[in-house]
């Protein structure tokens, strides 16, 4: 129960970050930024995937992860773990892209990376600790 609650809280934080970046993307505005590289990252080709903002994909993933916390059982744990691990791996790639390809750091992206990494660890812990049916 505590793990599910912790995952839900972090998913809500992720929804806030990804939601903000999605709004910024569609409004064609600049995110609030103290690192100076947010706009460069948000305007780079890495900010969209086949025309869909990466932030929107992140938002949908967090909503789905939040949904898995509302359900008990191994199935929900497994779904949450797959989503969170996928997100963590993809976020890791985007962090590499910021450093090595775009040469700019977006604080919102790094914040999201930290959230999704912790969510992934908690989802794995939940999967391993979820009581077996019956």
């Amino acid at each position: 129960m505590r793990l599910r609650a912790a995952i839900a809280v972090l998913a809500l934080a992720g929804i806030a970050v990804a939601g903000y970046l999605t709004i910024v993307h569609y409004a064609h505005t600049s995110p609030i930024c103290t690192t100076g590289g947010c706009e460069k990252v948000q305007h780079s080709s890495y900010a969209e995937l086949a025309g869909v903002p990466v932030a929107l994909l992140g938002l949908l993933a967090y909503v789905a992860i939040l949904g898995t916390t509302a359900v008990r059982g191994v199935g929900a744990s497994l779904a949450g773990a797959v989503l969170a691990l996928s997100g963590a791996a993809f976020s890791g790639y985007l962090l590499w892209a910021q450093i090595a390809r775009i040469h700019a750091i977006c604080q919102w992206c790094v914040g999201n990376d930290a959230i999704v990494a912790v969510v992934a660890a908690l989802c794995v812990a939940r999967l391993l600790g979820e009581p077996s049916p019956g």
């Binding site: 900010a47 995937l49 691990l85 791996a89 993809f90 790639y93 794995v124």
Partner: peptide, 20 residues
């Protein structure tokens, strides 16, 4: 789960460089 996540991530990374 890890294998599925790896496949999803690879697909996303392959699709991503399509650029805007």
């Amino acid at each position: 789960a890890i294998a599925a996540a790896a496949i999803v991530a690879v697909v996303l990374i392959v699709v991503l460089p399509s650029g805007s």
